[in-house]
Design a protein around this nucleic acid. Structure first.
Lengths: 154, 154
DNA sequence: AATGTAAATGTAACTCATTTGCATTTGCTC
DNA sequence: GAGCAAATGCAAATGAGTTACATTTACATT
């Protein structure tokens, strides 16, 4: 109840997101977008289904949904070395992820310096002319997992 | 014939690679390692099977092979946004890939500045303590594909 | 060189994620 | 509100990758 105002706001955002791309607004789509928005982390199809508790439609529907969302630039698929793809909302701020290899904790970070990197690569490359996108993921250990296993000093 | 010397040299390297890890030296394994060495690019299980033309053993064998090689640090699995993993030999020089989104051409590059990046991320992060690995891929267009489609200026 | 043993292989069957065909429903435009 | 394309649900298909189990092979030991 306390969040009614916020909920309707995000619903409006989701509506706009869909109509702008000429996608129809359905209950299931709003639920999926809302789940992703509040989770604030990339989720797999199965996580989406679970988190939505039936309100996202069937498995097939969610698969079709994420595919069309990725194709239309609403979602981005990211590979975090789980055995599947995770999906996240594409927002105004570009970011990457650092993943704890023990517990799966994910944190975002910005400022990857990819512009500089791309320029340097293109300067040296004989074959490439243009960089359109980049994928960067860091894999490490979070404080609690590092504490739990101090023997990792090699 | 002209390459007999070279061939035996790489075969020795492969042998060493395997015995060092207490893996048995088999025909199939030498073939897979040799294919990867001469291809000089990451390959999928199916590409390996095709390139080896039967000499790599069956599909199951190659799956088991790449898994054990990855586990023992002989191969690295990389995600180049194809719908599968590709495998490459882990060499002395760490590198990343730039992939042409049109034709699939792959080029390596070094000097990604990940050390600096990791340090910056850890400094800002509340939760993370250590970065062990990083994955970086650039996606772009190569000269020939860029030439073939100049309308990509938007 | 013969031999014992664990590792590697082949075949077939299986699991699981994702996709597709098709009939039905639903959002949205007029 | 009617009509149509898009979205959905169900069932079945596909395809990558794995597992069980019987057989073969590499290689250490003698």
């Amino acid at each position: 109840m306390r969040q009614a105002r916020h909920a309707s706001t995000t619903a409006q955002e989701s509506r706009a997101l869909l109509t702008k791309r000429r996608l129809k607004v359905t209950k299931a789509r709003l639920v999926v977008l809302d789940v992703l928005r509040s989770a604030r982390r990339p989720m797999s199809v199965h996580e989406l289904l679970k988190a939505a508790r039936g309100r996202a439609g069937g498995t097939v529907t969610v698969y079709r949904m994420v595919n069309s969302f990725v194709a239309r630039g609403i979602l981005r698929a990211v590979n975090l070395r789980h055995d599947h793809l995770d999906y996240e909302l594409i927002g105004p701020t570009d970011h990457h992820h650092i993943v704890c290899v023990k517990c799966g904790l994910i944190e975002d970070f910005t400022g990857c310096g990819a512009g500089r990197m791309a320029a340097a690569v293109l300067k040296k490359s004989r074959s490439f002319k243009l960089v359109r996108e980049h994928a960067i993921e860091l894999f490490g250990t979070c404080r609690s997992c590092a504490g739990a296993e101090p023997s990792s000093k090699k």
